[in-house]
Simulated assay, not measured.
Amino acid sequence: MWAEMTSMEARFGDATRIVPLPNPWNLTSYLAAVAAHRGRSISLHTAPKALLHEIGCGGGGLWIARKHDDIIVSDVEATDRNADHIVLHQVGHMLLGHGTRESTREVPPRLALMLPSVSPQSIEHMLGRDEFGVEREREAEVFADMTMVYATLPQRRSRSFRLFGRGK
């Protein structure tokens, strides 16, 4: 378990060095920095939680990677911190390299009606909770949790992840 946590800490540290957390925290600024790092824009959309659950996104979020951009779909009823957490969970998948072309699938018809600009031909992969697997889901969840914690800490010159309970 310790080696696993150290590896996770290193990967999260790499992610925050590559795309530093803005100080003061601002989700829009952070998404712009992630998009710039990836060379792809990121757009946010919402859908009813029941629809997301129906298509295998029990956590309330979905990442659609197209050829030139990324779309994050979150629960339309999620508010404030919960909405940010859902978005950050999907960003965690992006920055931790969880995407895979093997998970390509078509946009479910009900979601396609809500996102008419998303043509099936433009999708590289569409990933919800079922496609990532337990380990990757846990990593993305911890990434989102840690980002939310660091976003609420008092402002400091430098911000990077340090897992709880670890010495300096």
Rank of each mutant, 00 (worst) to 15 (best):
M1R: 11
W2E: 13
W2Q: 12
W2G: 01
M5D: 02
M5W: 13
T6N: 11
T6D: 04
M8G: 10
A10C: 05
A10R: 03
R11V: 04
R11F: 06
F12Q: 01
A15N: 01
T16C: 10
R17M: 10
V19H: 07
V19L: 02
P20I: 03
L21E: 15
P22H: 12
P22Q: 06
W25H: 08
W25M: 08
N26A: 05
N26C: 04
L27I: 04
L27Q: 04
T28N: 03
S29I: 03
Y30A: 00
L31C: 02
L31M: 14
A32Y: 03
A32K: 11
A33Q: 12
A33G: 02
V34F: 10
H37R: 10
G39L: 07
I42D: 10
I42Q: 00
I42K: 04
S43N: 14
T46V: 04
T46L: 01
A47I: 04
K49T: 06
A50N: 08
H53N: 14
H53A: 14
H53R: 15
E54F: 07
G56R: 11
G56D: 00
G56Q: 04
C57V: 03
G58Y: 13
G59H: 06
G61Y: 00
L62C: 14
R66H: 09
R66N: 01
H68V: 13
H68Y: 15
D69G: 02
D69L: 06
I71P: 12
V73E: 08
V73H: 03
V73C: 06
D75G: 08
V76P: 13
D80Y: 11
H85W: 13
H85P: 04
V87S: 01
V87I: 09
V87Y: 03
H89Y: 09
M94K: 06
M94E: 01
M94T: 01
L95V: 00
G97P: 07
G97W: 00
H98F: 12
G99Q: 08
G99W: 09
G99I: 03
T100Y: 03
T100W: 00
R101G: 09
R101Y: 11
E102L: 13
E102H: 07
E102T: 05
S103M: 09
S103P: 00
S103Y: 09
E106Y: 10
E106L: 03
P109G: 02
L113Q: 15
L113W: 05
M114I: 15
L115I: 02
S117L: 10
S119F: 08
Q121L: 10
S122W: 15
I123E: 07
M126G: 03
L127D: 07
L127G: 06
G128H: 01
D130Q: 00
E131F: 02
E131P: 00
E131L: 08
F132K: 03
F132A: 13
G133N: 00
R136H: 13
R136C: 10
R136A: 11
E137L: 13
R138V: 15
R138L: 09
R138E: 07
A140F: 08
F143H: 14
D145W: 06
M146R: 15
T147I: 08
M148K: 00
V149D: 07
Y150D: 11
T152M: 10
L153C: 14
P154Q: 13
Q155T: 06
Q155Y: 04
R156W: 01
R157M: 05
R159C: 12
S160T: 14
S160M: 08
R162V: 14
L163S: 02
F164Y: 15
G165P: 04
G167K: 12
G167C: 12
K168A: 11
